[in-house]
Design a protein around this nucleic acid. Structure first.
Lengths: 195, 195
DNA sequence: TTAAAAATATGATGACCATCATATAATCAA
DNA sequence: TTGATTATATGATGGTCATCATATTTTTAA
């Protein structure tokens, strides 16, 4: 176990704050002074940790991916221990009411929260985005016990992300919950033999 | 045919410019002075046409939806006249290489270009977003000759939007085209009997 | 043609932003 | 403890932004 230095701890704290902000407010709303303030620091100190705002953006996206993956791992372990099949558990967690709603708190999957901005990113941050997408596809494949091809895993991933995004876009119209539930149940049925 | 007044024509030109910018650069990148400049006007005149930036945002999203729907209508008519089934034609157009790439020109489906930002919108613009989503679902249902339920149409819509977004996010990694093609062909096969 | 009305332009205001040079405070090695 | 190093804070700079009051130009109607 490597102990973190003071600087590393501060670095982590900035990242954690930024990872929350980009998911809640979007990439463009990440303001250096704001991040530092929310991390309990002053804005000038920022450049001791990151070469510029862009560097923070890339690291924050990566951090959000790791944070989200870790939470997923825990939730999955819980459900699987209750006897739920891995892929079914994943679909149910991903399209849960909780995941539908926690975007306003800067939690949840960063891909669903940000993917329509991916094509606009600078090269460095876009590489991180691509890594997250690939990791996502591999996870789905792994949860299917390798019964899904890469392409099929991509398709399921697309469906999950798209459904969550559209349901979030419909929140307030009383259709959101209906569509989300229908999608969840349909997908669970459709993929129940693939695990 | 109602002739447009000078003011109405200018209004349309501003909207057209804004509709392009939000799809290419995102909601947050829409700057009033920039829109006006690109529309060949000076920024001060803006407030004779819109009460504020937010009002433009809402109208621009609506305009982008109409523009995209009109283009789709034309492309669909063309393909259907060539004997392609409606839903197949739609899937092939939506997941085409052209649609993958035209995001950088501010063209194409505004939902795919912007949907991860929908949950962050103000009430007025979010209502427009919800309208676009619903219209999308209805279109898919109509193209399926009503053989798809609303929920199933939502699921297909989610898959299409998600696939396009993820493929755009992977552009440059040489996986983009592979996944897009695989998704297109898989979906065409899967929905070939539904029209 | 001319006065009224409508459309657009000029220029200013105050707010926010990324970045950085420099100063202070905290930590660490001796 | 003390000097050196590292981490954080202060405050400034130059840029961008939305908004608006006012001025000018263009259109319309008589």
């Amino acid at each position: 176990m490597t102990a973190l230095s003071k600087k590393e701890m501060t670095h982590q704290r900035i990242l954690q704050t930024a990872a929350k902000i980009i998911r809640r407010d979007g990439f463009d709303s990440l303001a250096v002074a704001d991040v530092m303030k929310q991390a309990g620091l002053t804005h000038g100190g920022f450049y001791a940790h990151f070469s510029n705002r862009g560097a923070l953006l890339a690291e924050a996206l990566d951090y959000a991916g790791a944070e989200s993956a870790e939470l997923l791992r825990q939730n999955l372990a819980q459900r699987i221990s209750e006897g739920v099949q891995p892929l079914t558990a994943f679909i149910e967690i991903y399209l849960s009411d909780e995941h539908l709603n926690n975007c306003t708190e800067g939690a949840g999957c960063p891909v669903a929260a940000l993917s329509s901005d991916f094509f606009r990113l600078d090269t460095t941050t876009k590489a991180v985005a691509a890594k997250l997408i690939e990791a996502y596809i591999e996870k789905v494949q792994w949860l299917s016990n390798q019964t899904l091809s890469r392409e099929s895993a991509f398709l399921l991933t697309s469906t999950l992300i798209g459904s969550l995004q559209l349901a979030r876009g419909l929140k307030g119209t009383d259709q959101a919950s209906f569509y989300l539930t229908a999608s969840r149940e349909d997908l669970v049925r459709r993929y129940s033999d693939r695990q």
